[in-house]
Amino acid sequence: MERIEVLKTYKIFIGGQFPRTESGRYYSLKLKNNMTVNVSLSSRKDFKNAVVSARGAFNAWSSRAAFNRGQILYRIAEMLEGRKEQFLEELKQLGYSAPKAKKEMEQCVDRLVYYAGWADKYQQLHSSVNPVATSHFNFSVPEPMGVVSIMADESTALLGLISVIAPCIVGGNTCIVLASENKPTCAITFAEVLATSDVPAGVINILTGNRKELHTHFSSHMDVNAVINSNSEKEFNKTIGENASLNVKRLFIWDKNWIDEKEQGPYFITDLQEIKTTWHPIENIGISGIKY
């Protein structure tokens, strides 16, 4: 007799844990092998829980050395590379052709490595020492915005998600990500990668569910500092923009073709950074000055 395959229950990822949605709701997704996956239909409460864990993780994550954040991103890439076969199979079940699946996986790993490398470099490109006219030392540096809510690209299972998470967290932010509604399984398997990659709990939280239902919550929560939608949805984006004004959230519509190699760069990192300027007086004694 043929062996019966053990199927996986797809959960969501909050604060380093894998709960099912507190709402108990699900939506069904038919895979290419005719099996059905019952995906968590996350609720507003799941999102709120995720914000609490993202906020809780922010201080420690943003205080890590930039070098360390780079190492952790690189570690995610290593783990992902090691589990490539599993992802290729999952992508196939979501309707990807074999070459398309292969290309997406390679790009996912490469993009993580790319941003890992930026961890301790974008600061040098975007900082400045400002030659003020008074006797002060004055410098400006980028700092993370805080908690970012992200509605990932609908058209890709993993690349769109990674292309936004990577620049977000490499800069010290923490995030809550809504996976592609029709291709959610890879995002949750990716959470398993994250859970074994030294990413501290709460830095990345991944939900599955319905964008129509959740976009209002992703944009209106008062403890979220920035909101990104990677989908050009005119109506949703108007509501997202209006809700963003409730607490002056930074808003980004990143409707990009993530397969394009050009859609990566330090500006995705610095868009999610604040610029902080510090002043300090320079004493004015010893004015005989430098002579040699």
């Binding site: 400045s128 400002n130 030659p131 003020v132 006219a133 008074t134 002060h136 004055n138 400006s140 610029i275 300027t277 002043w279 300090h280 007086p281």
Partner: peptide, 10 residues
């Protein structure tokens, strides 16, 4: 120091 401004300072 406090309340210092300069065109070069963001």
């Amino acid at each position: 120091t406090y309340n210092k401004f300069d065109p070069t300072s963001p």
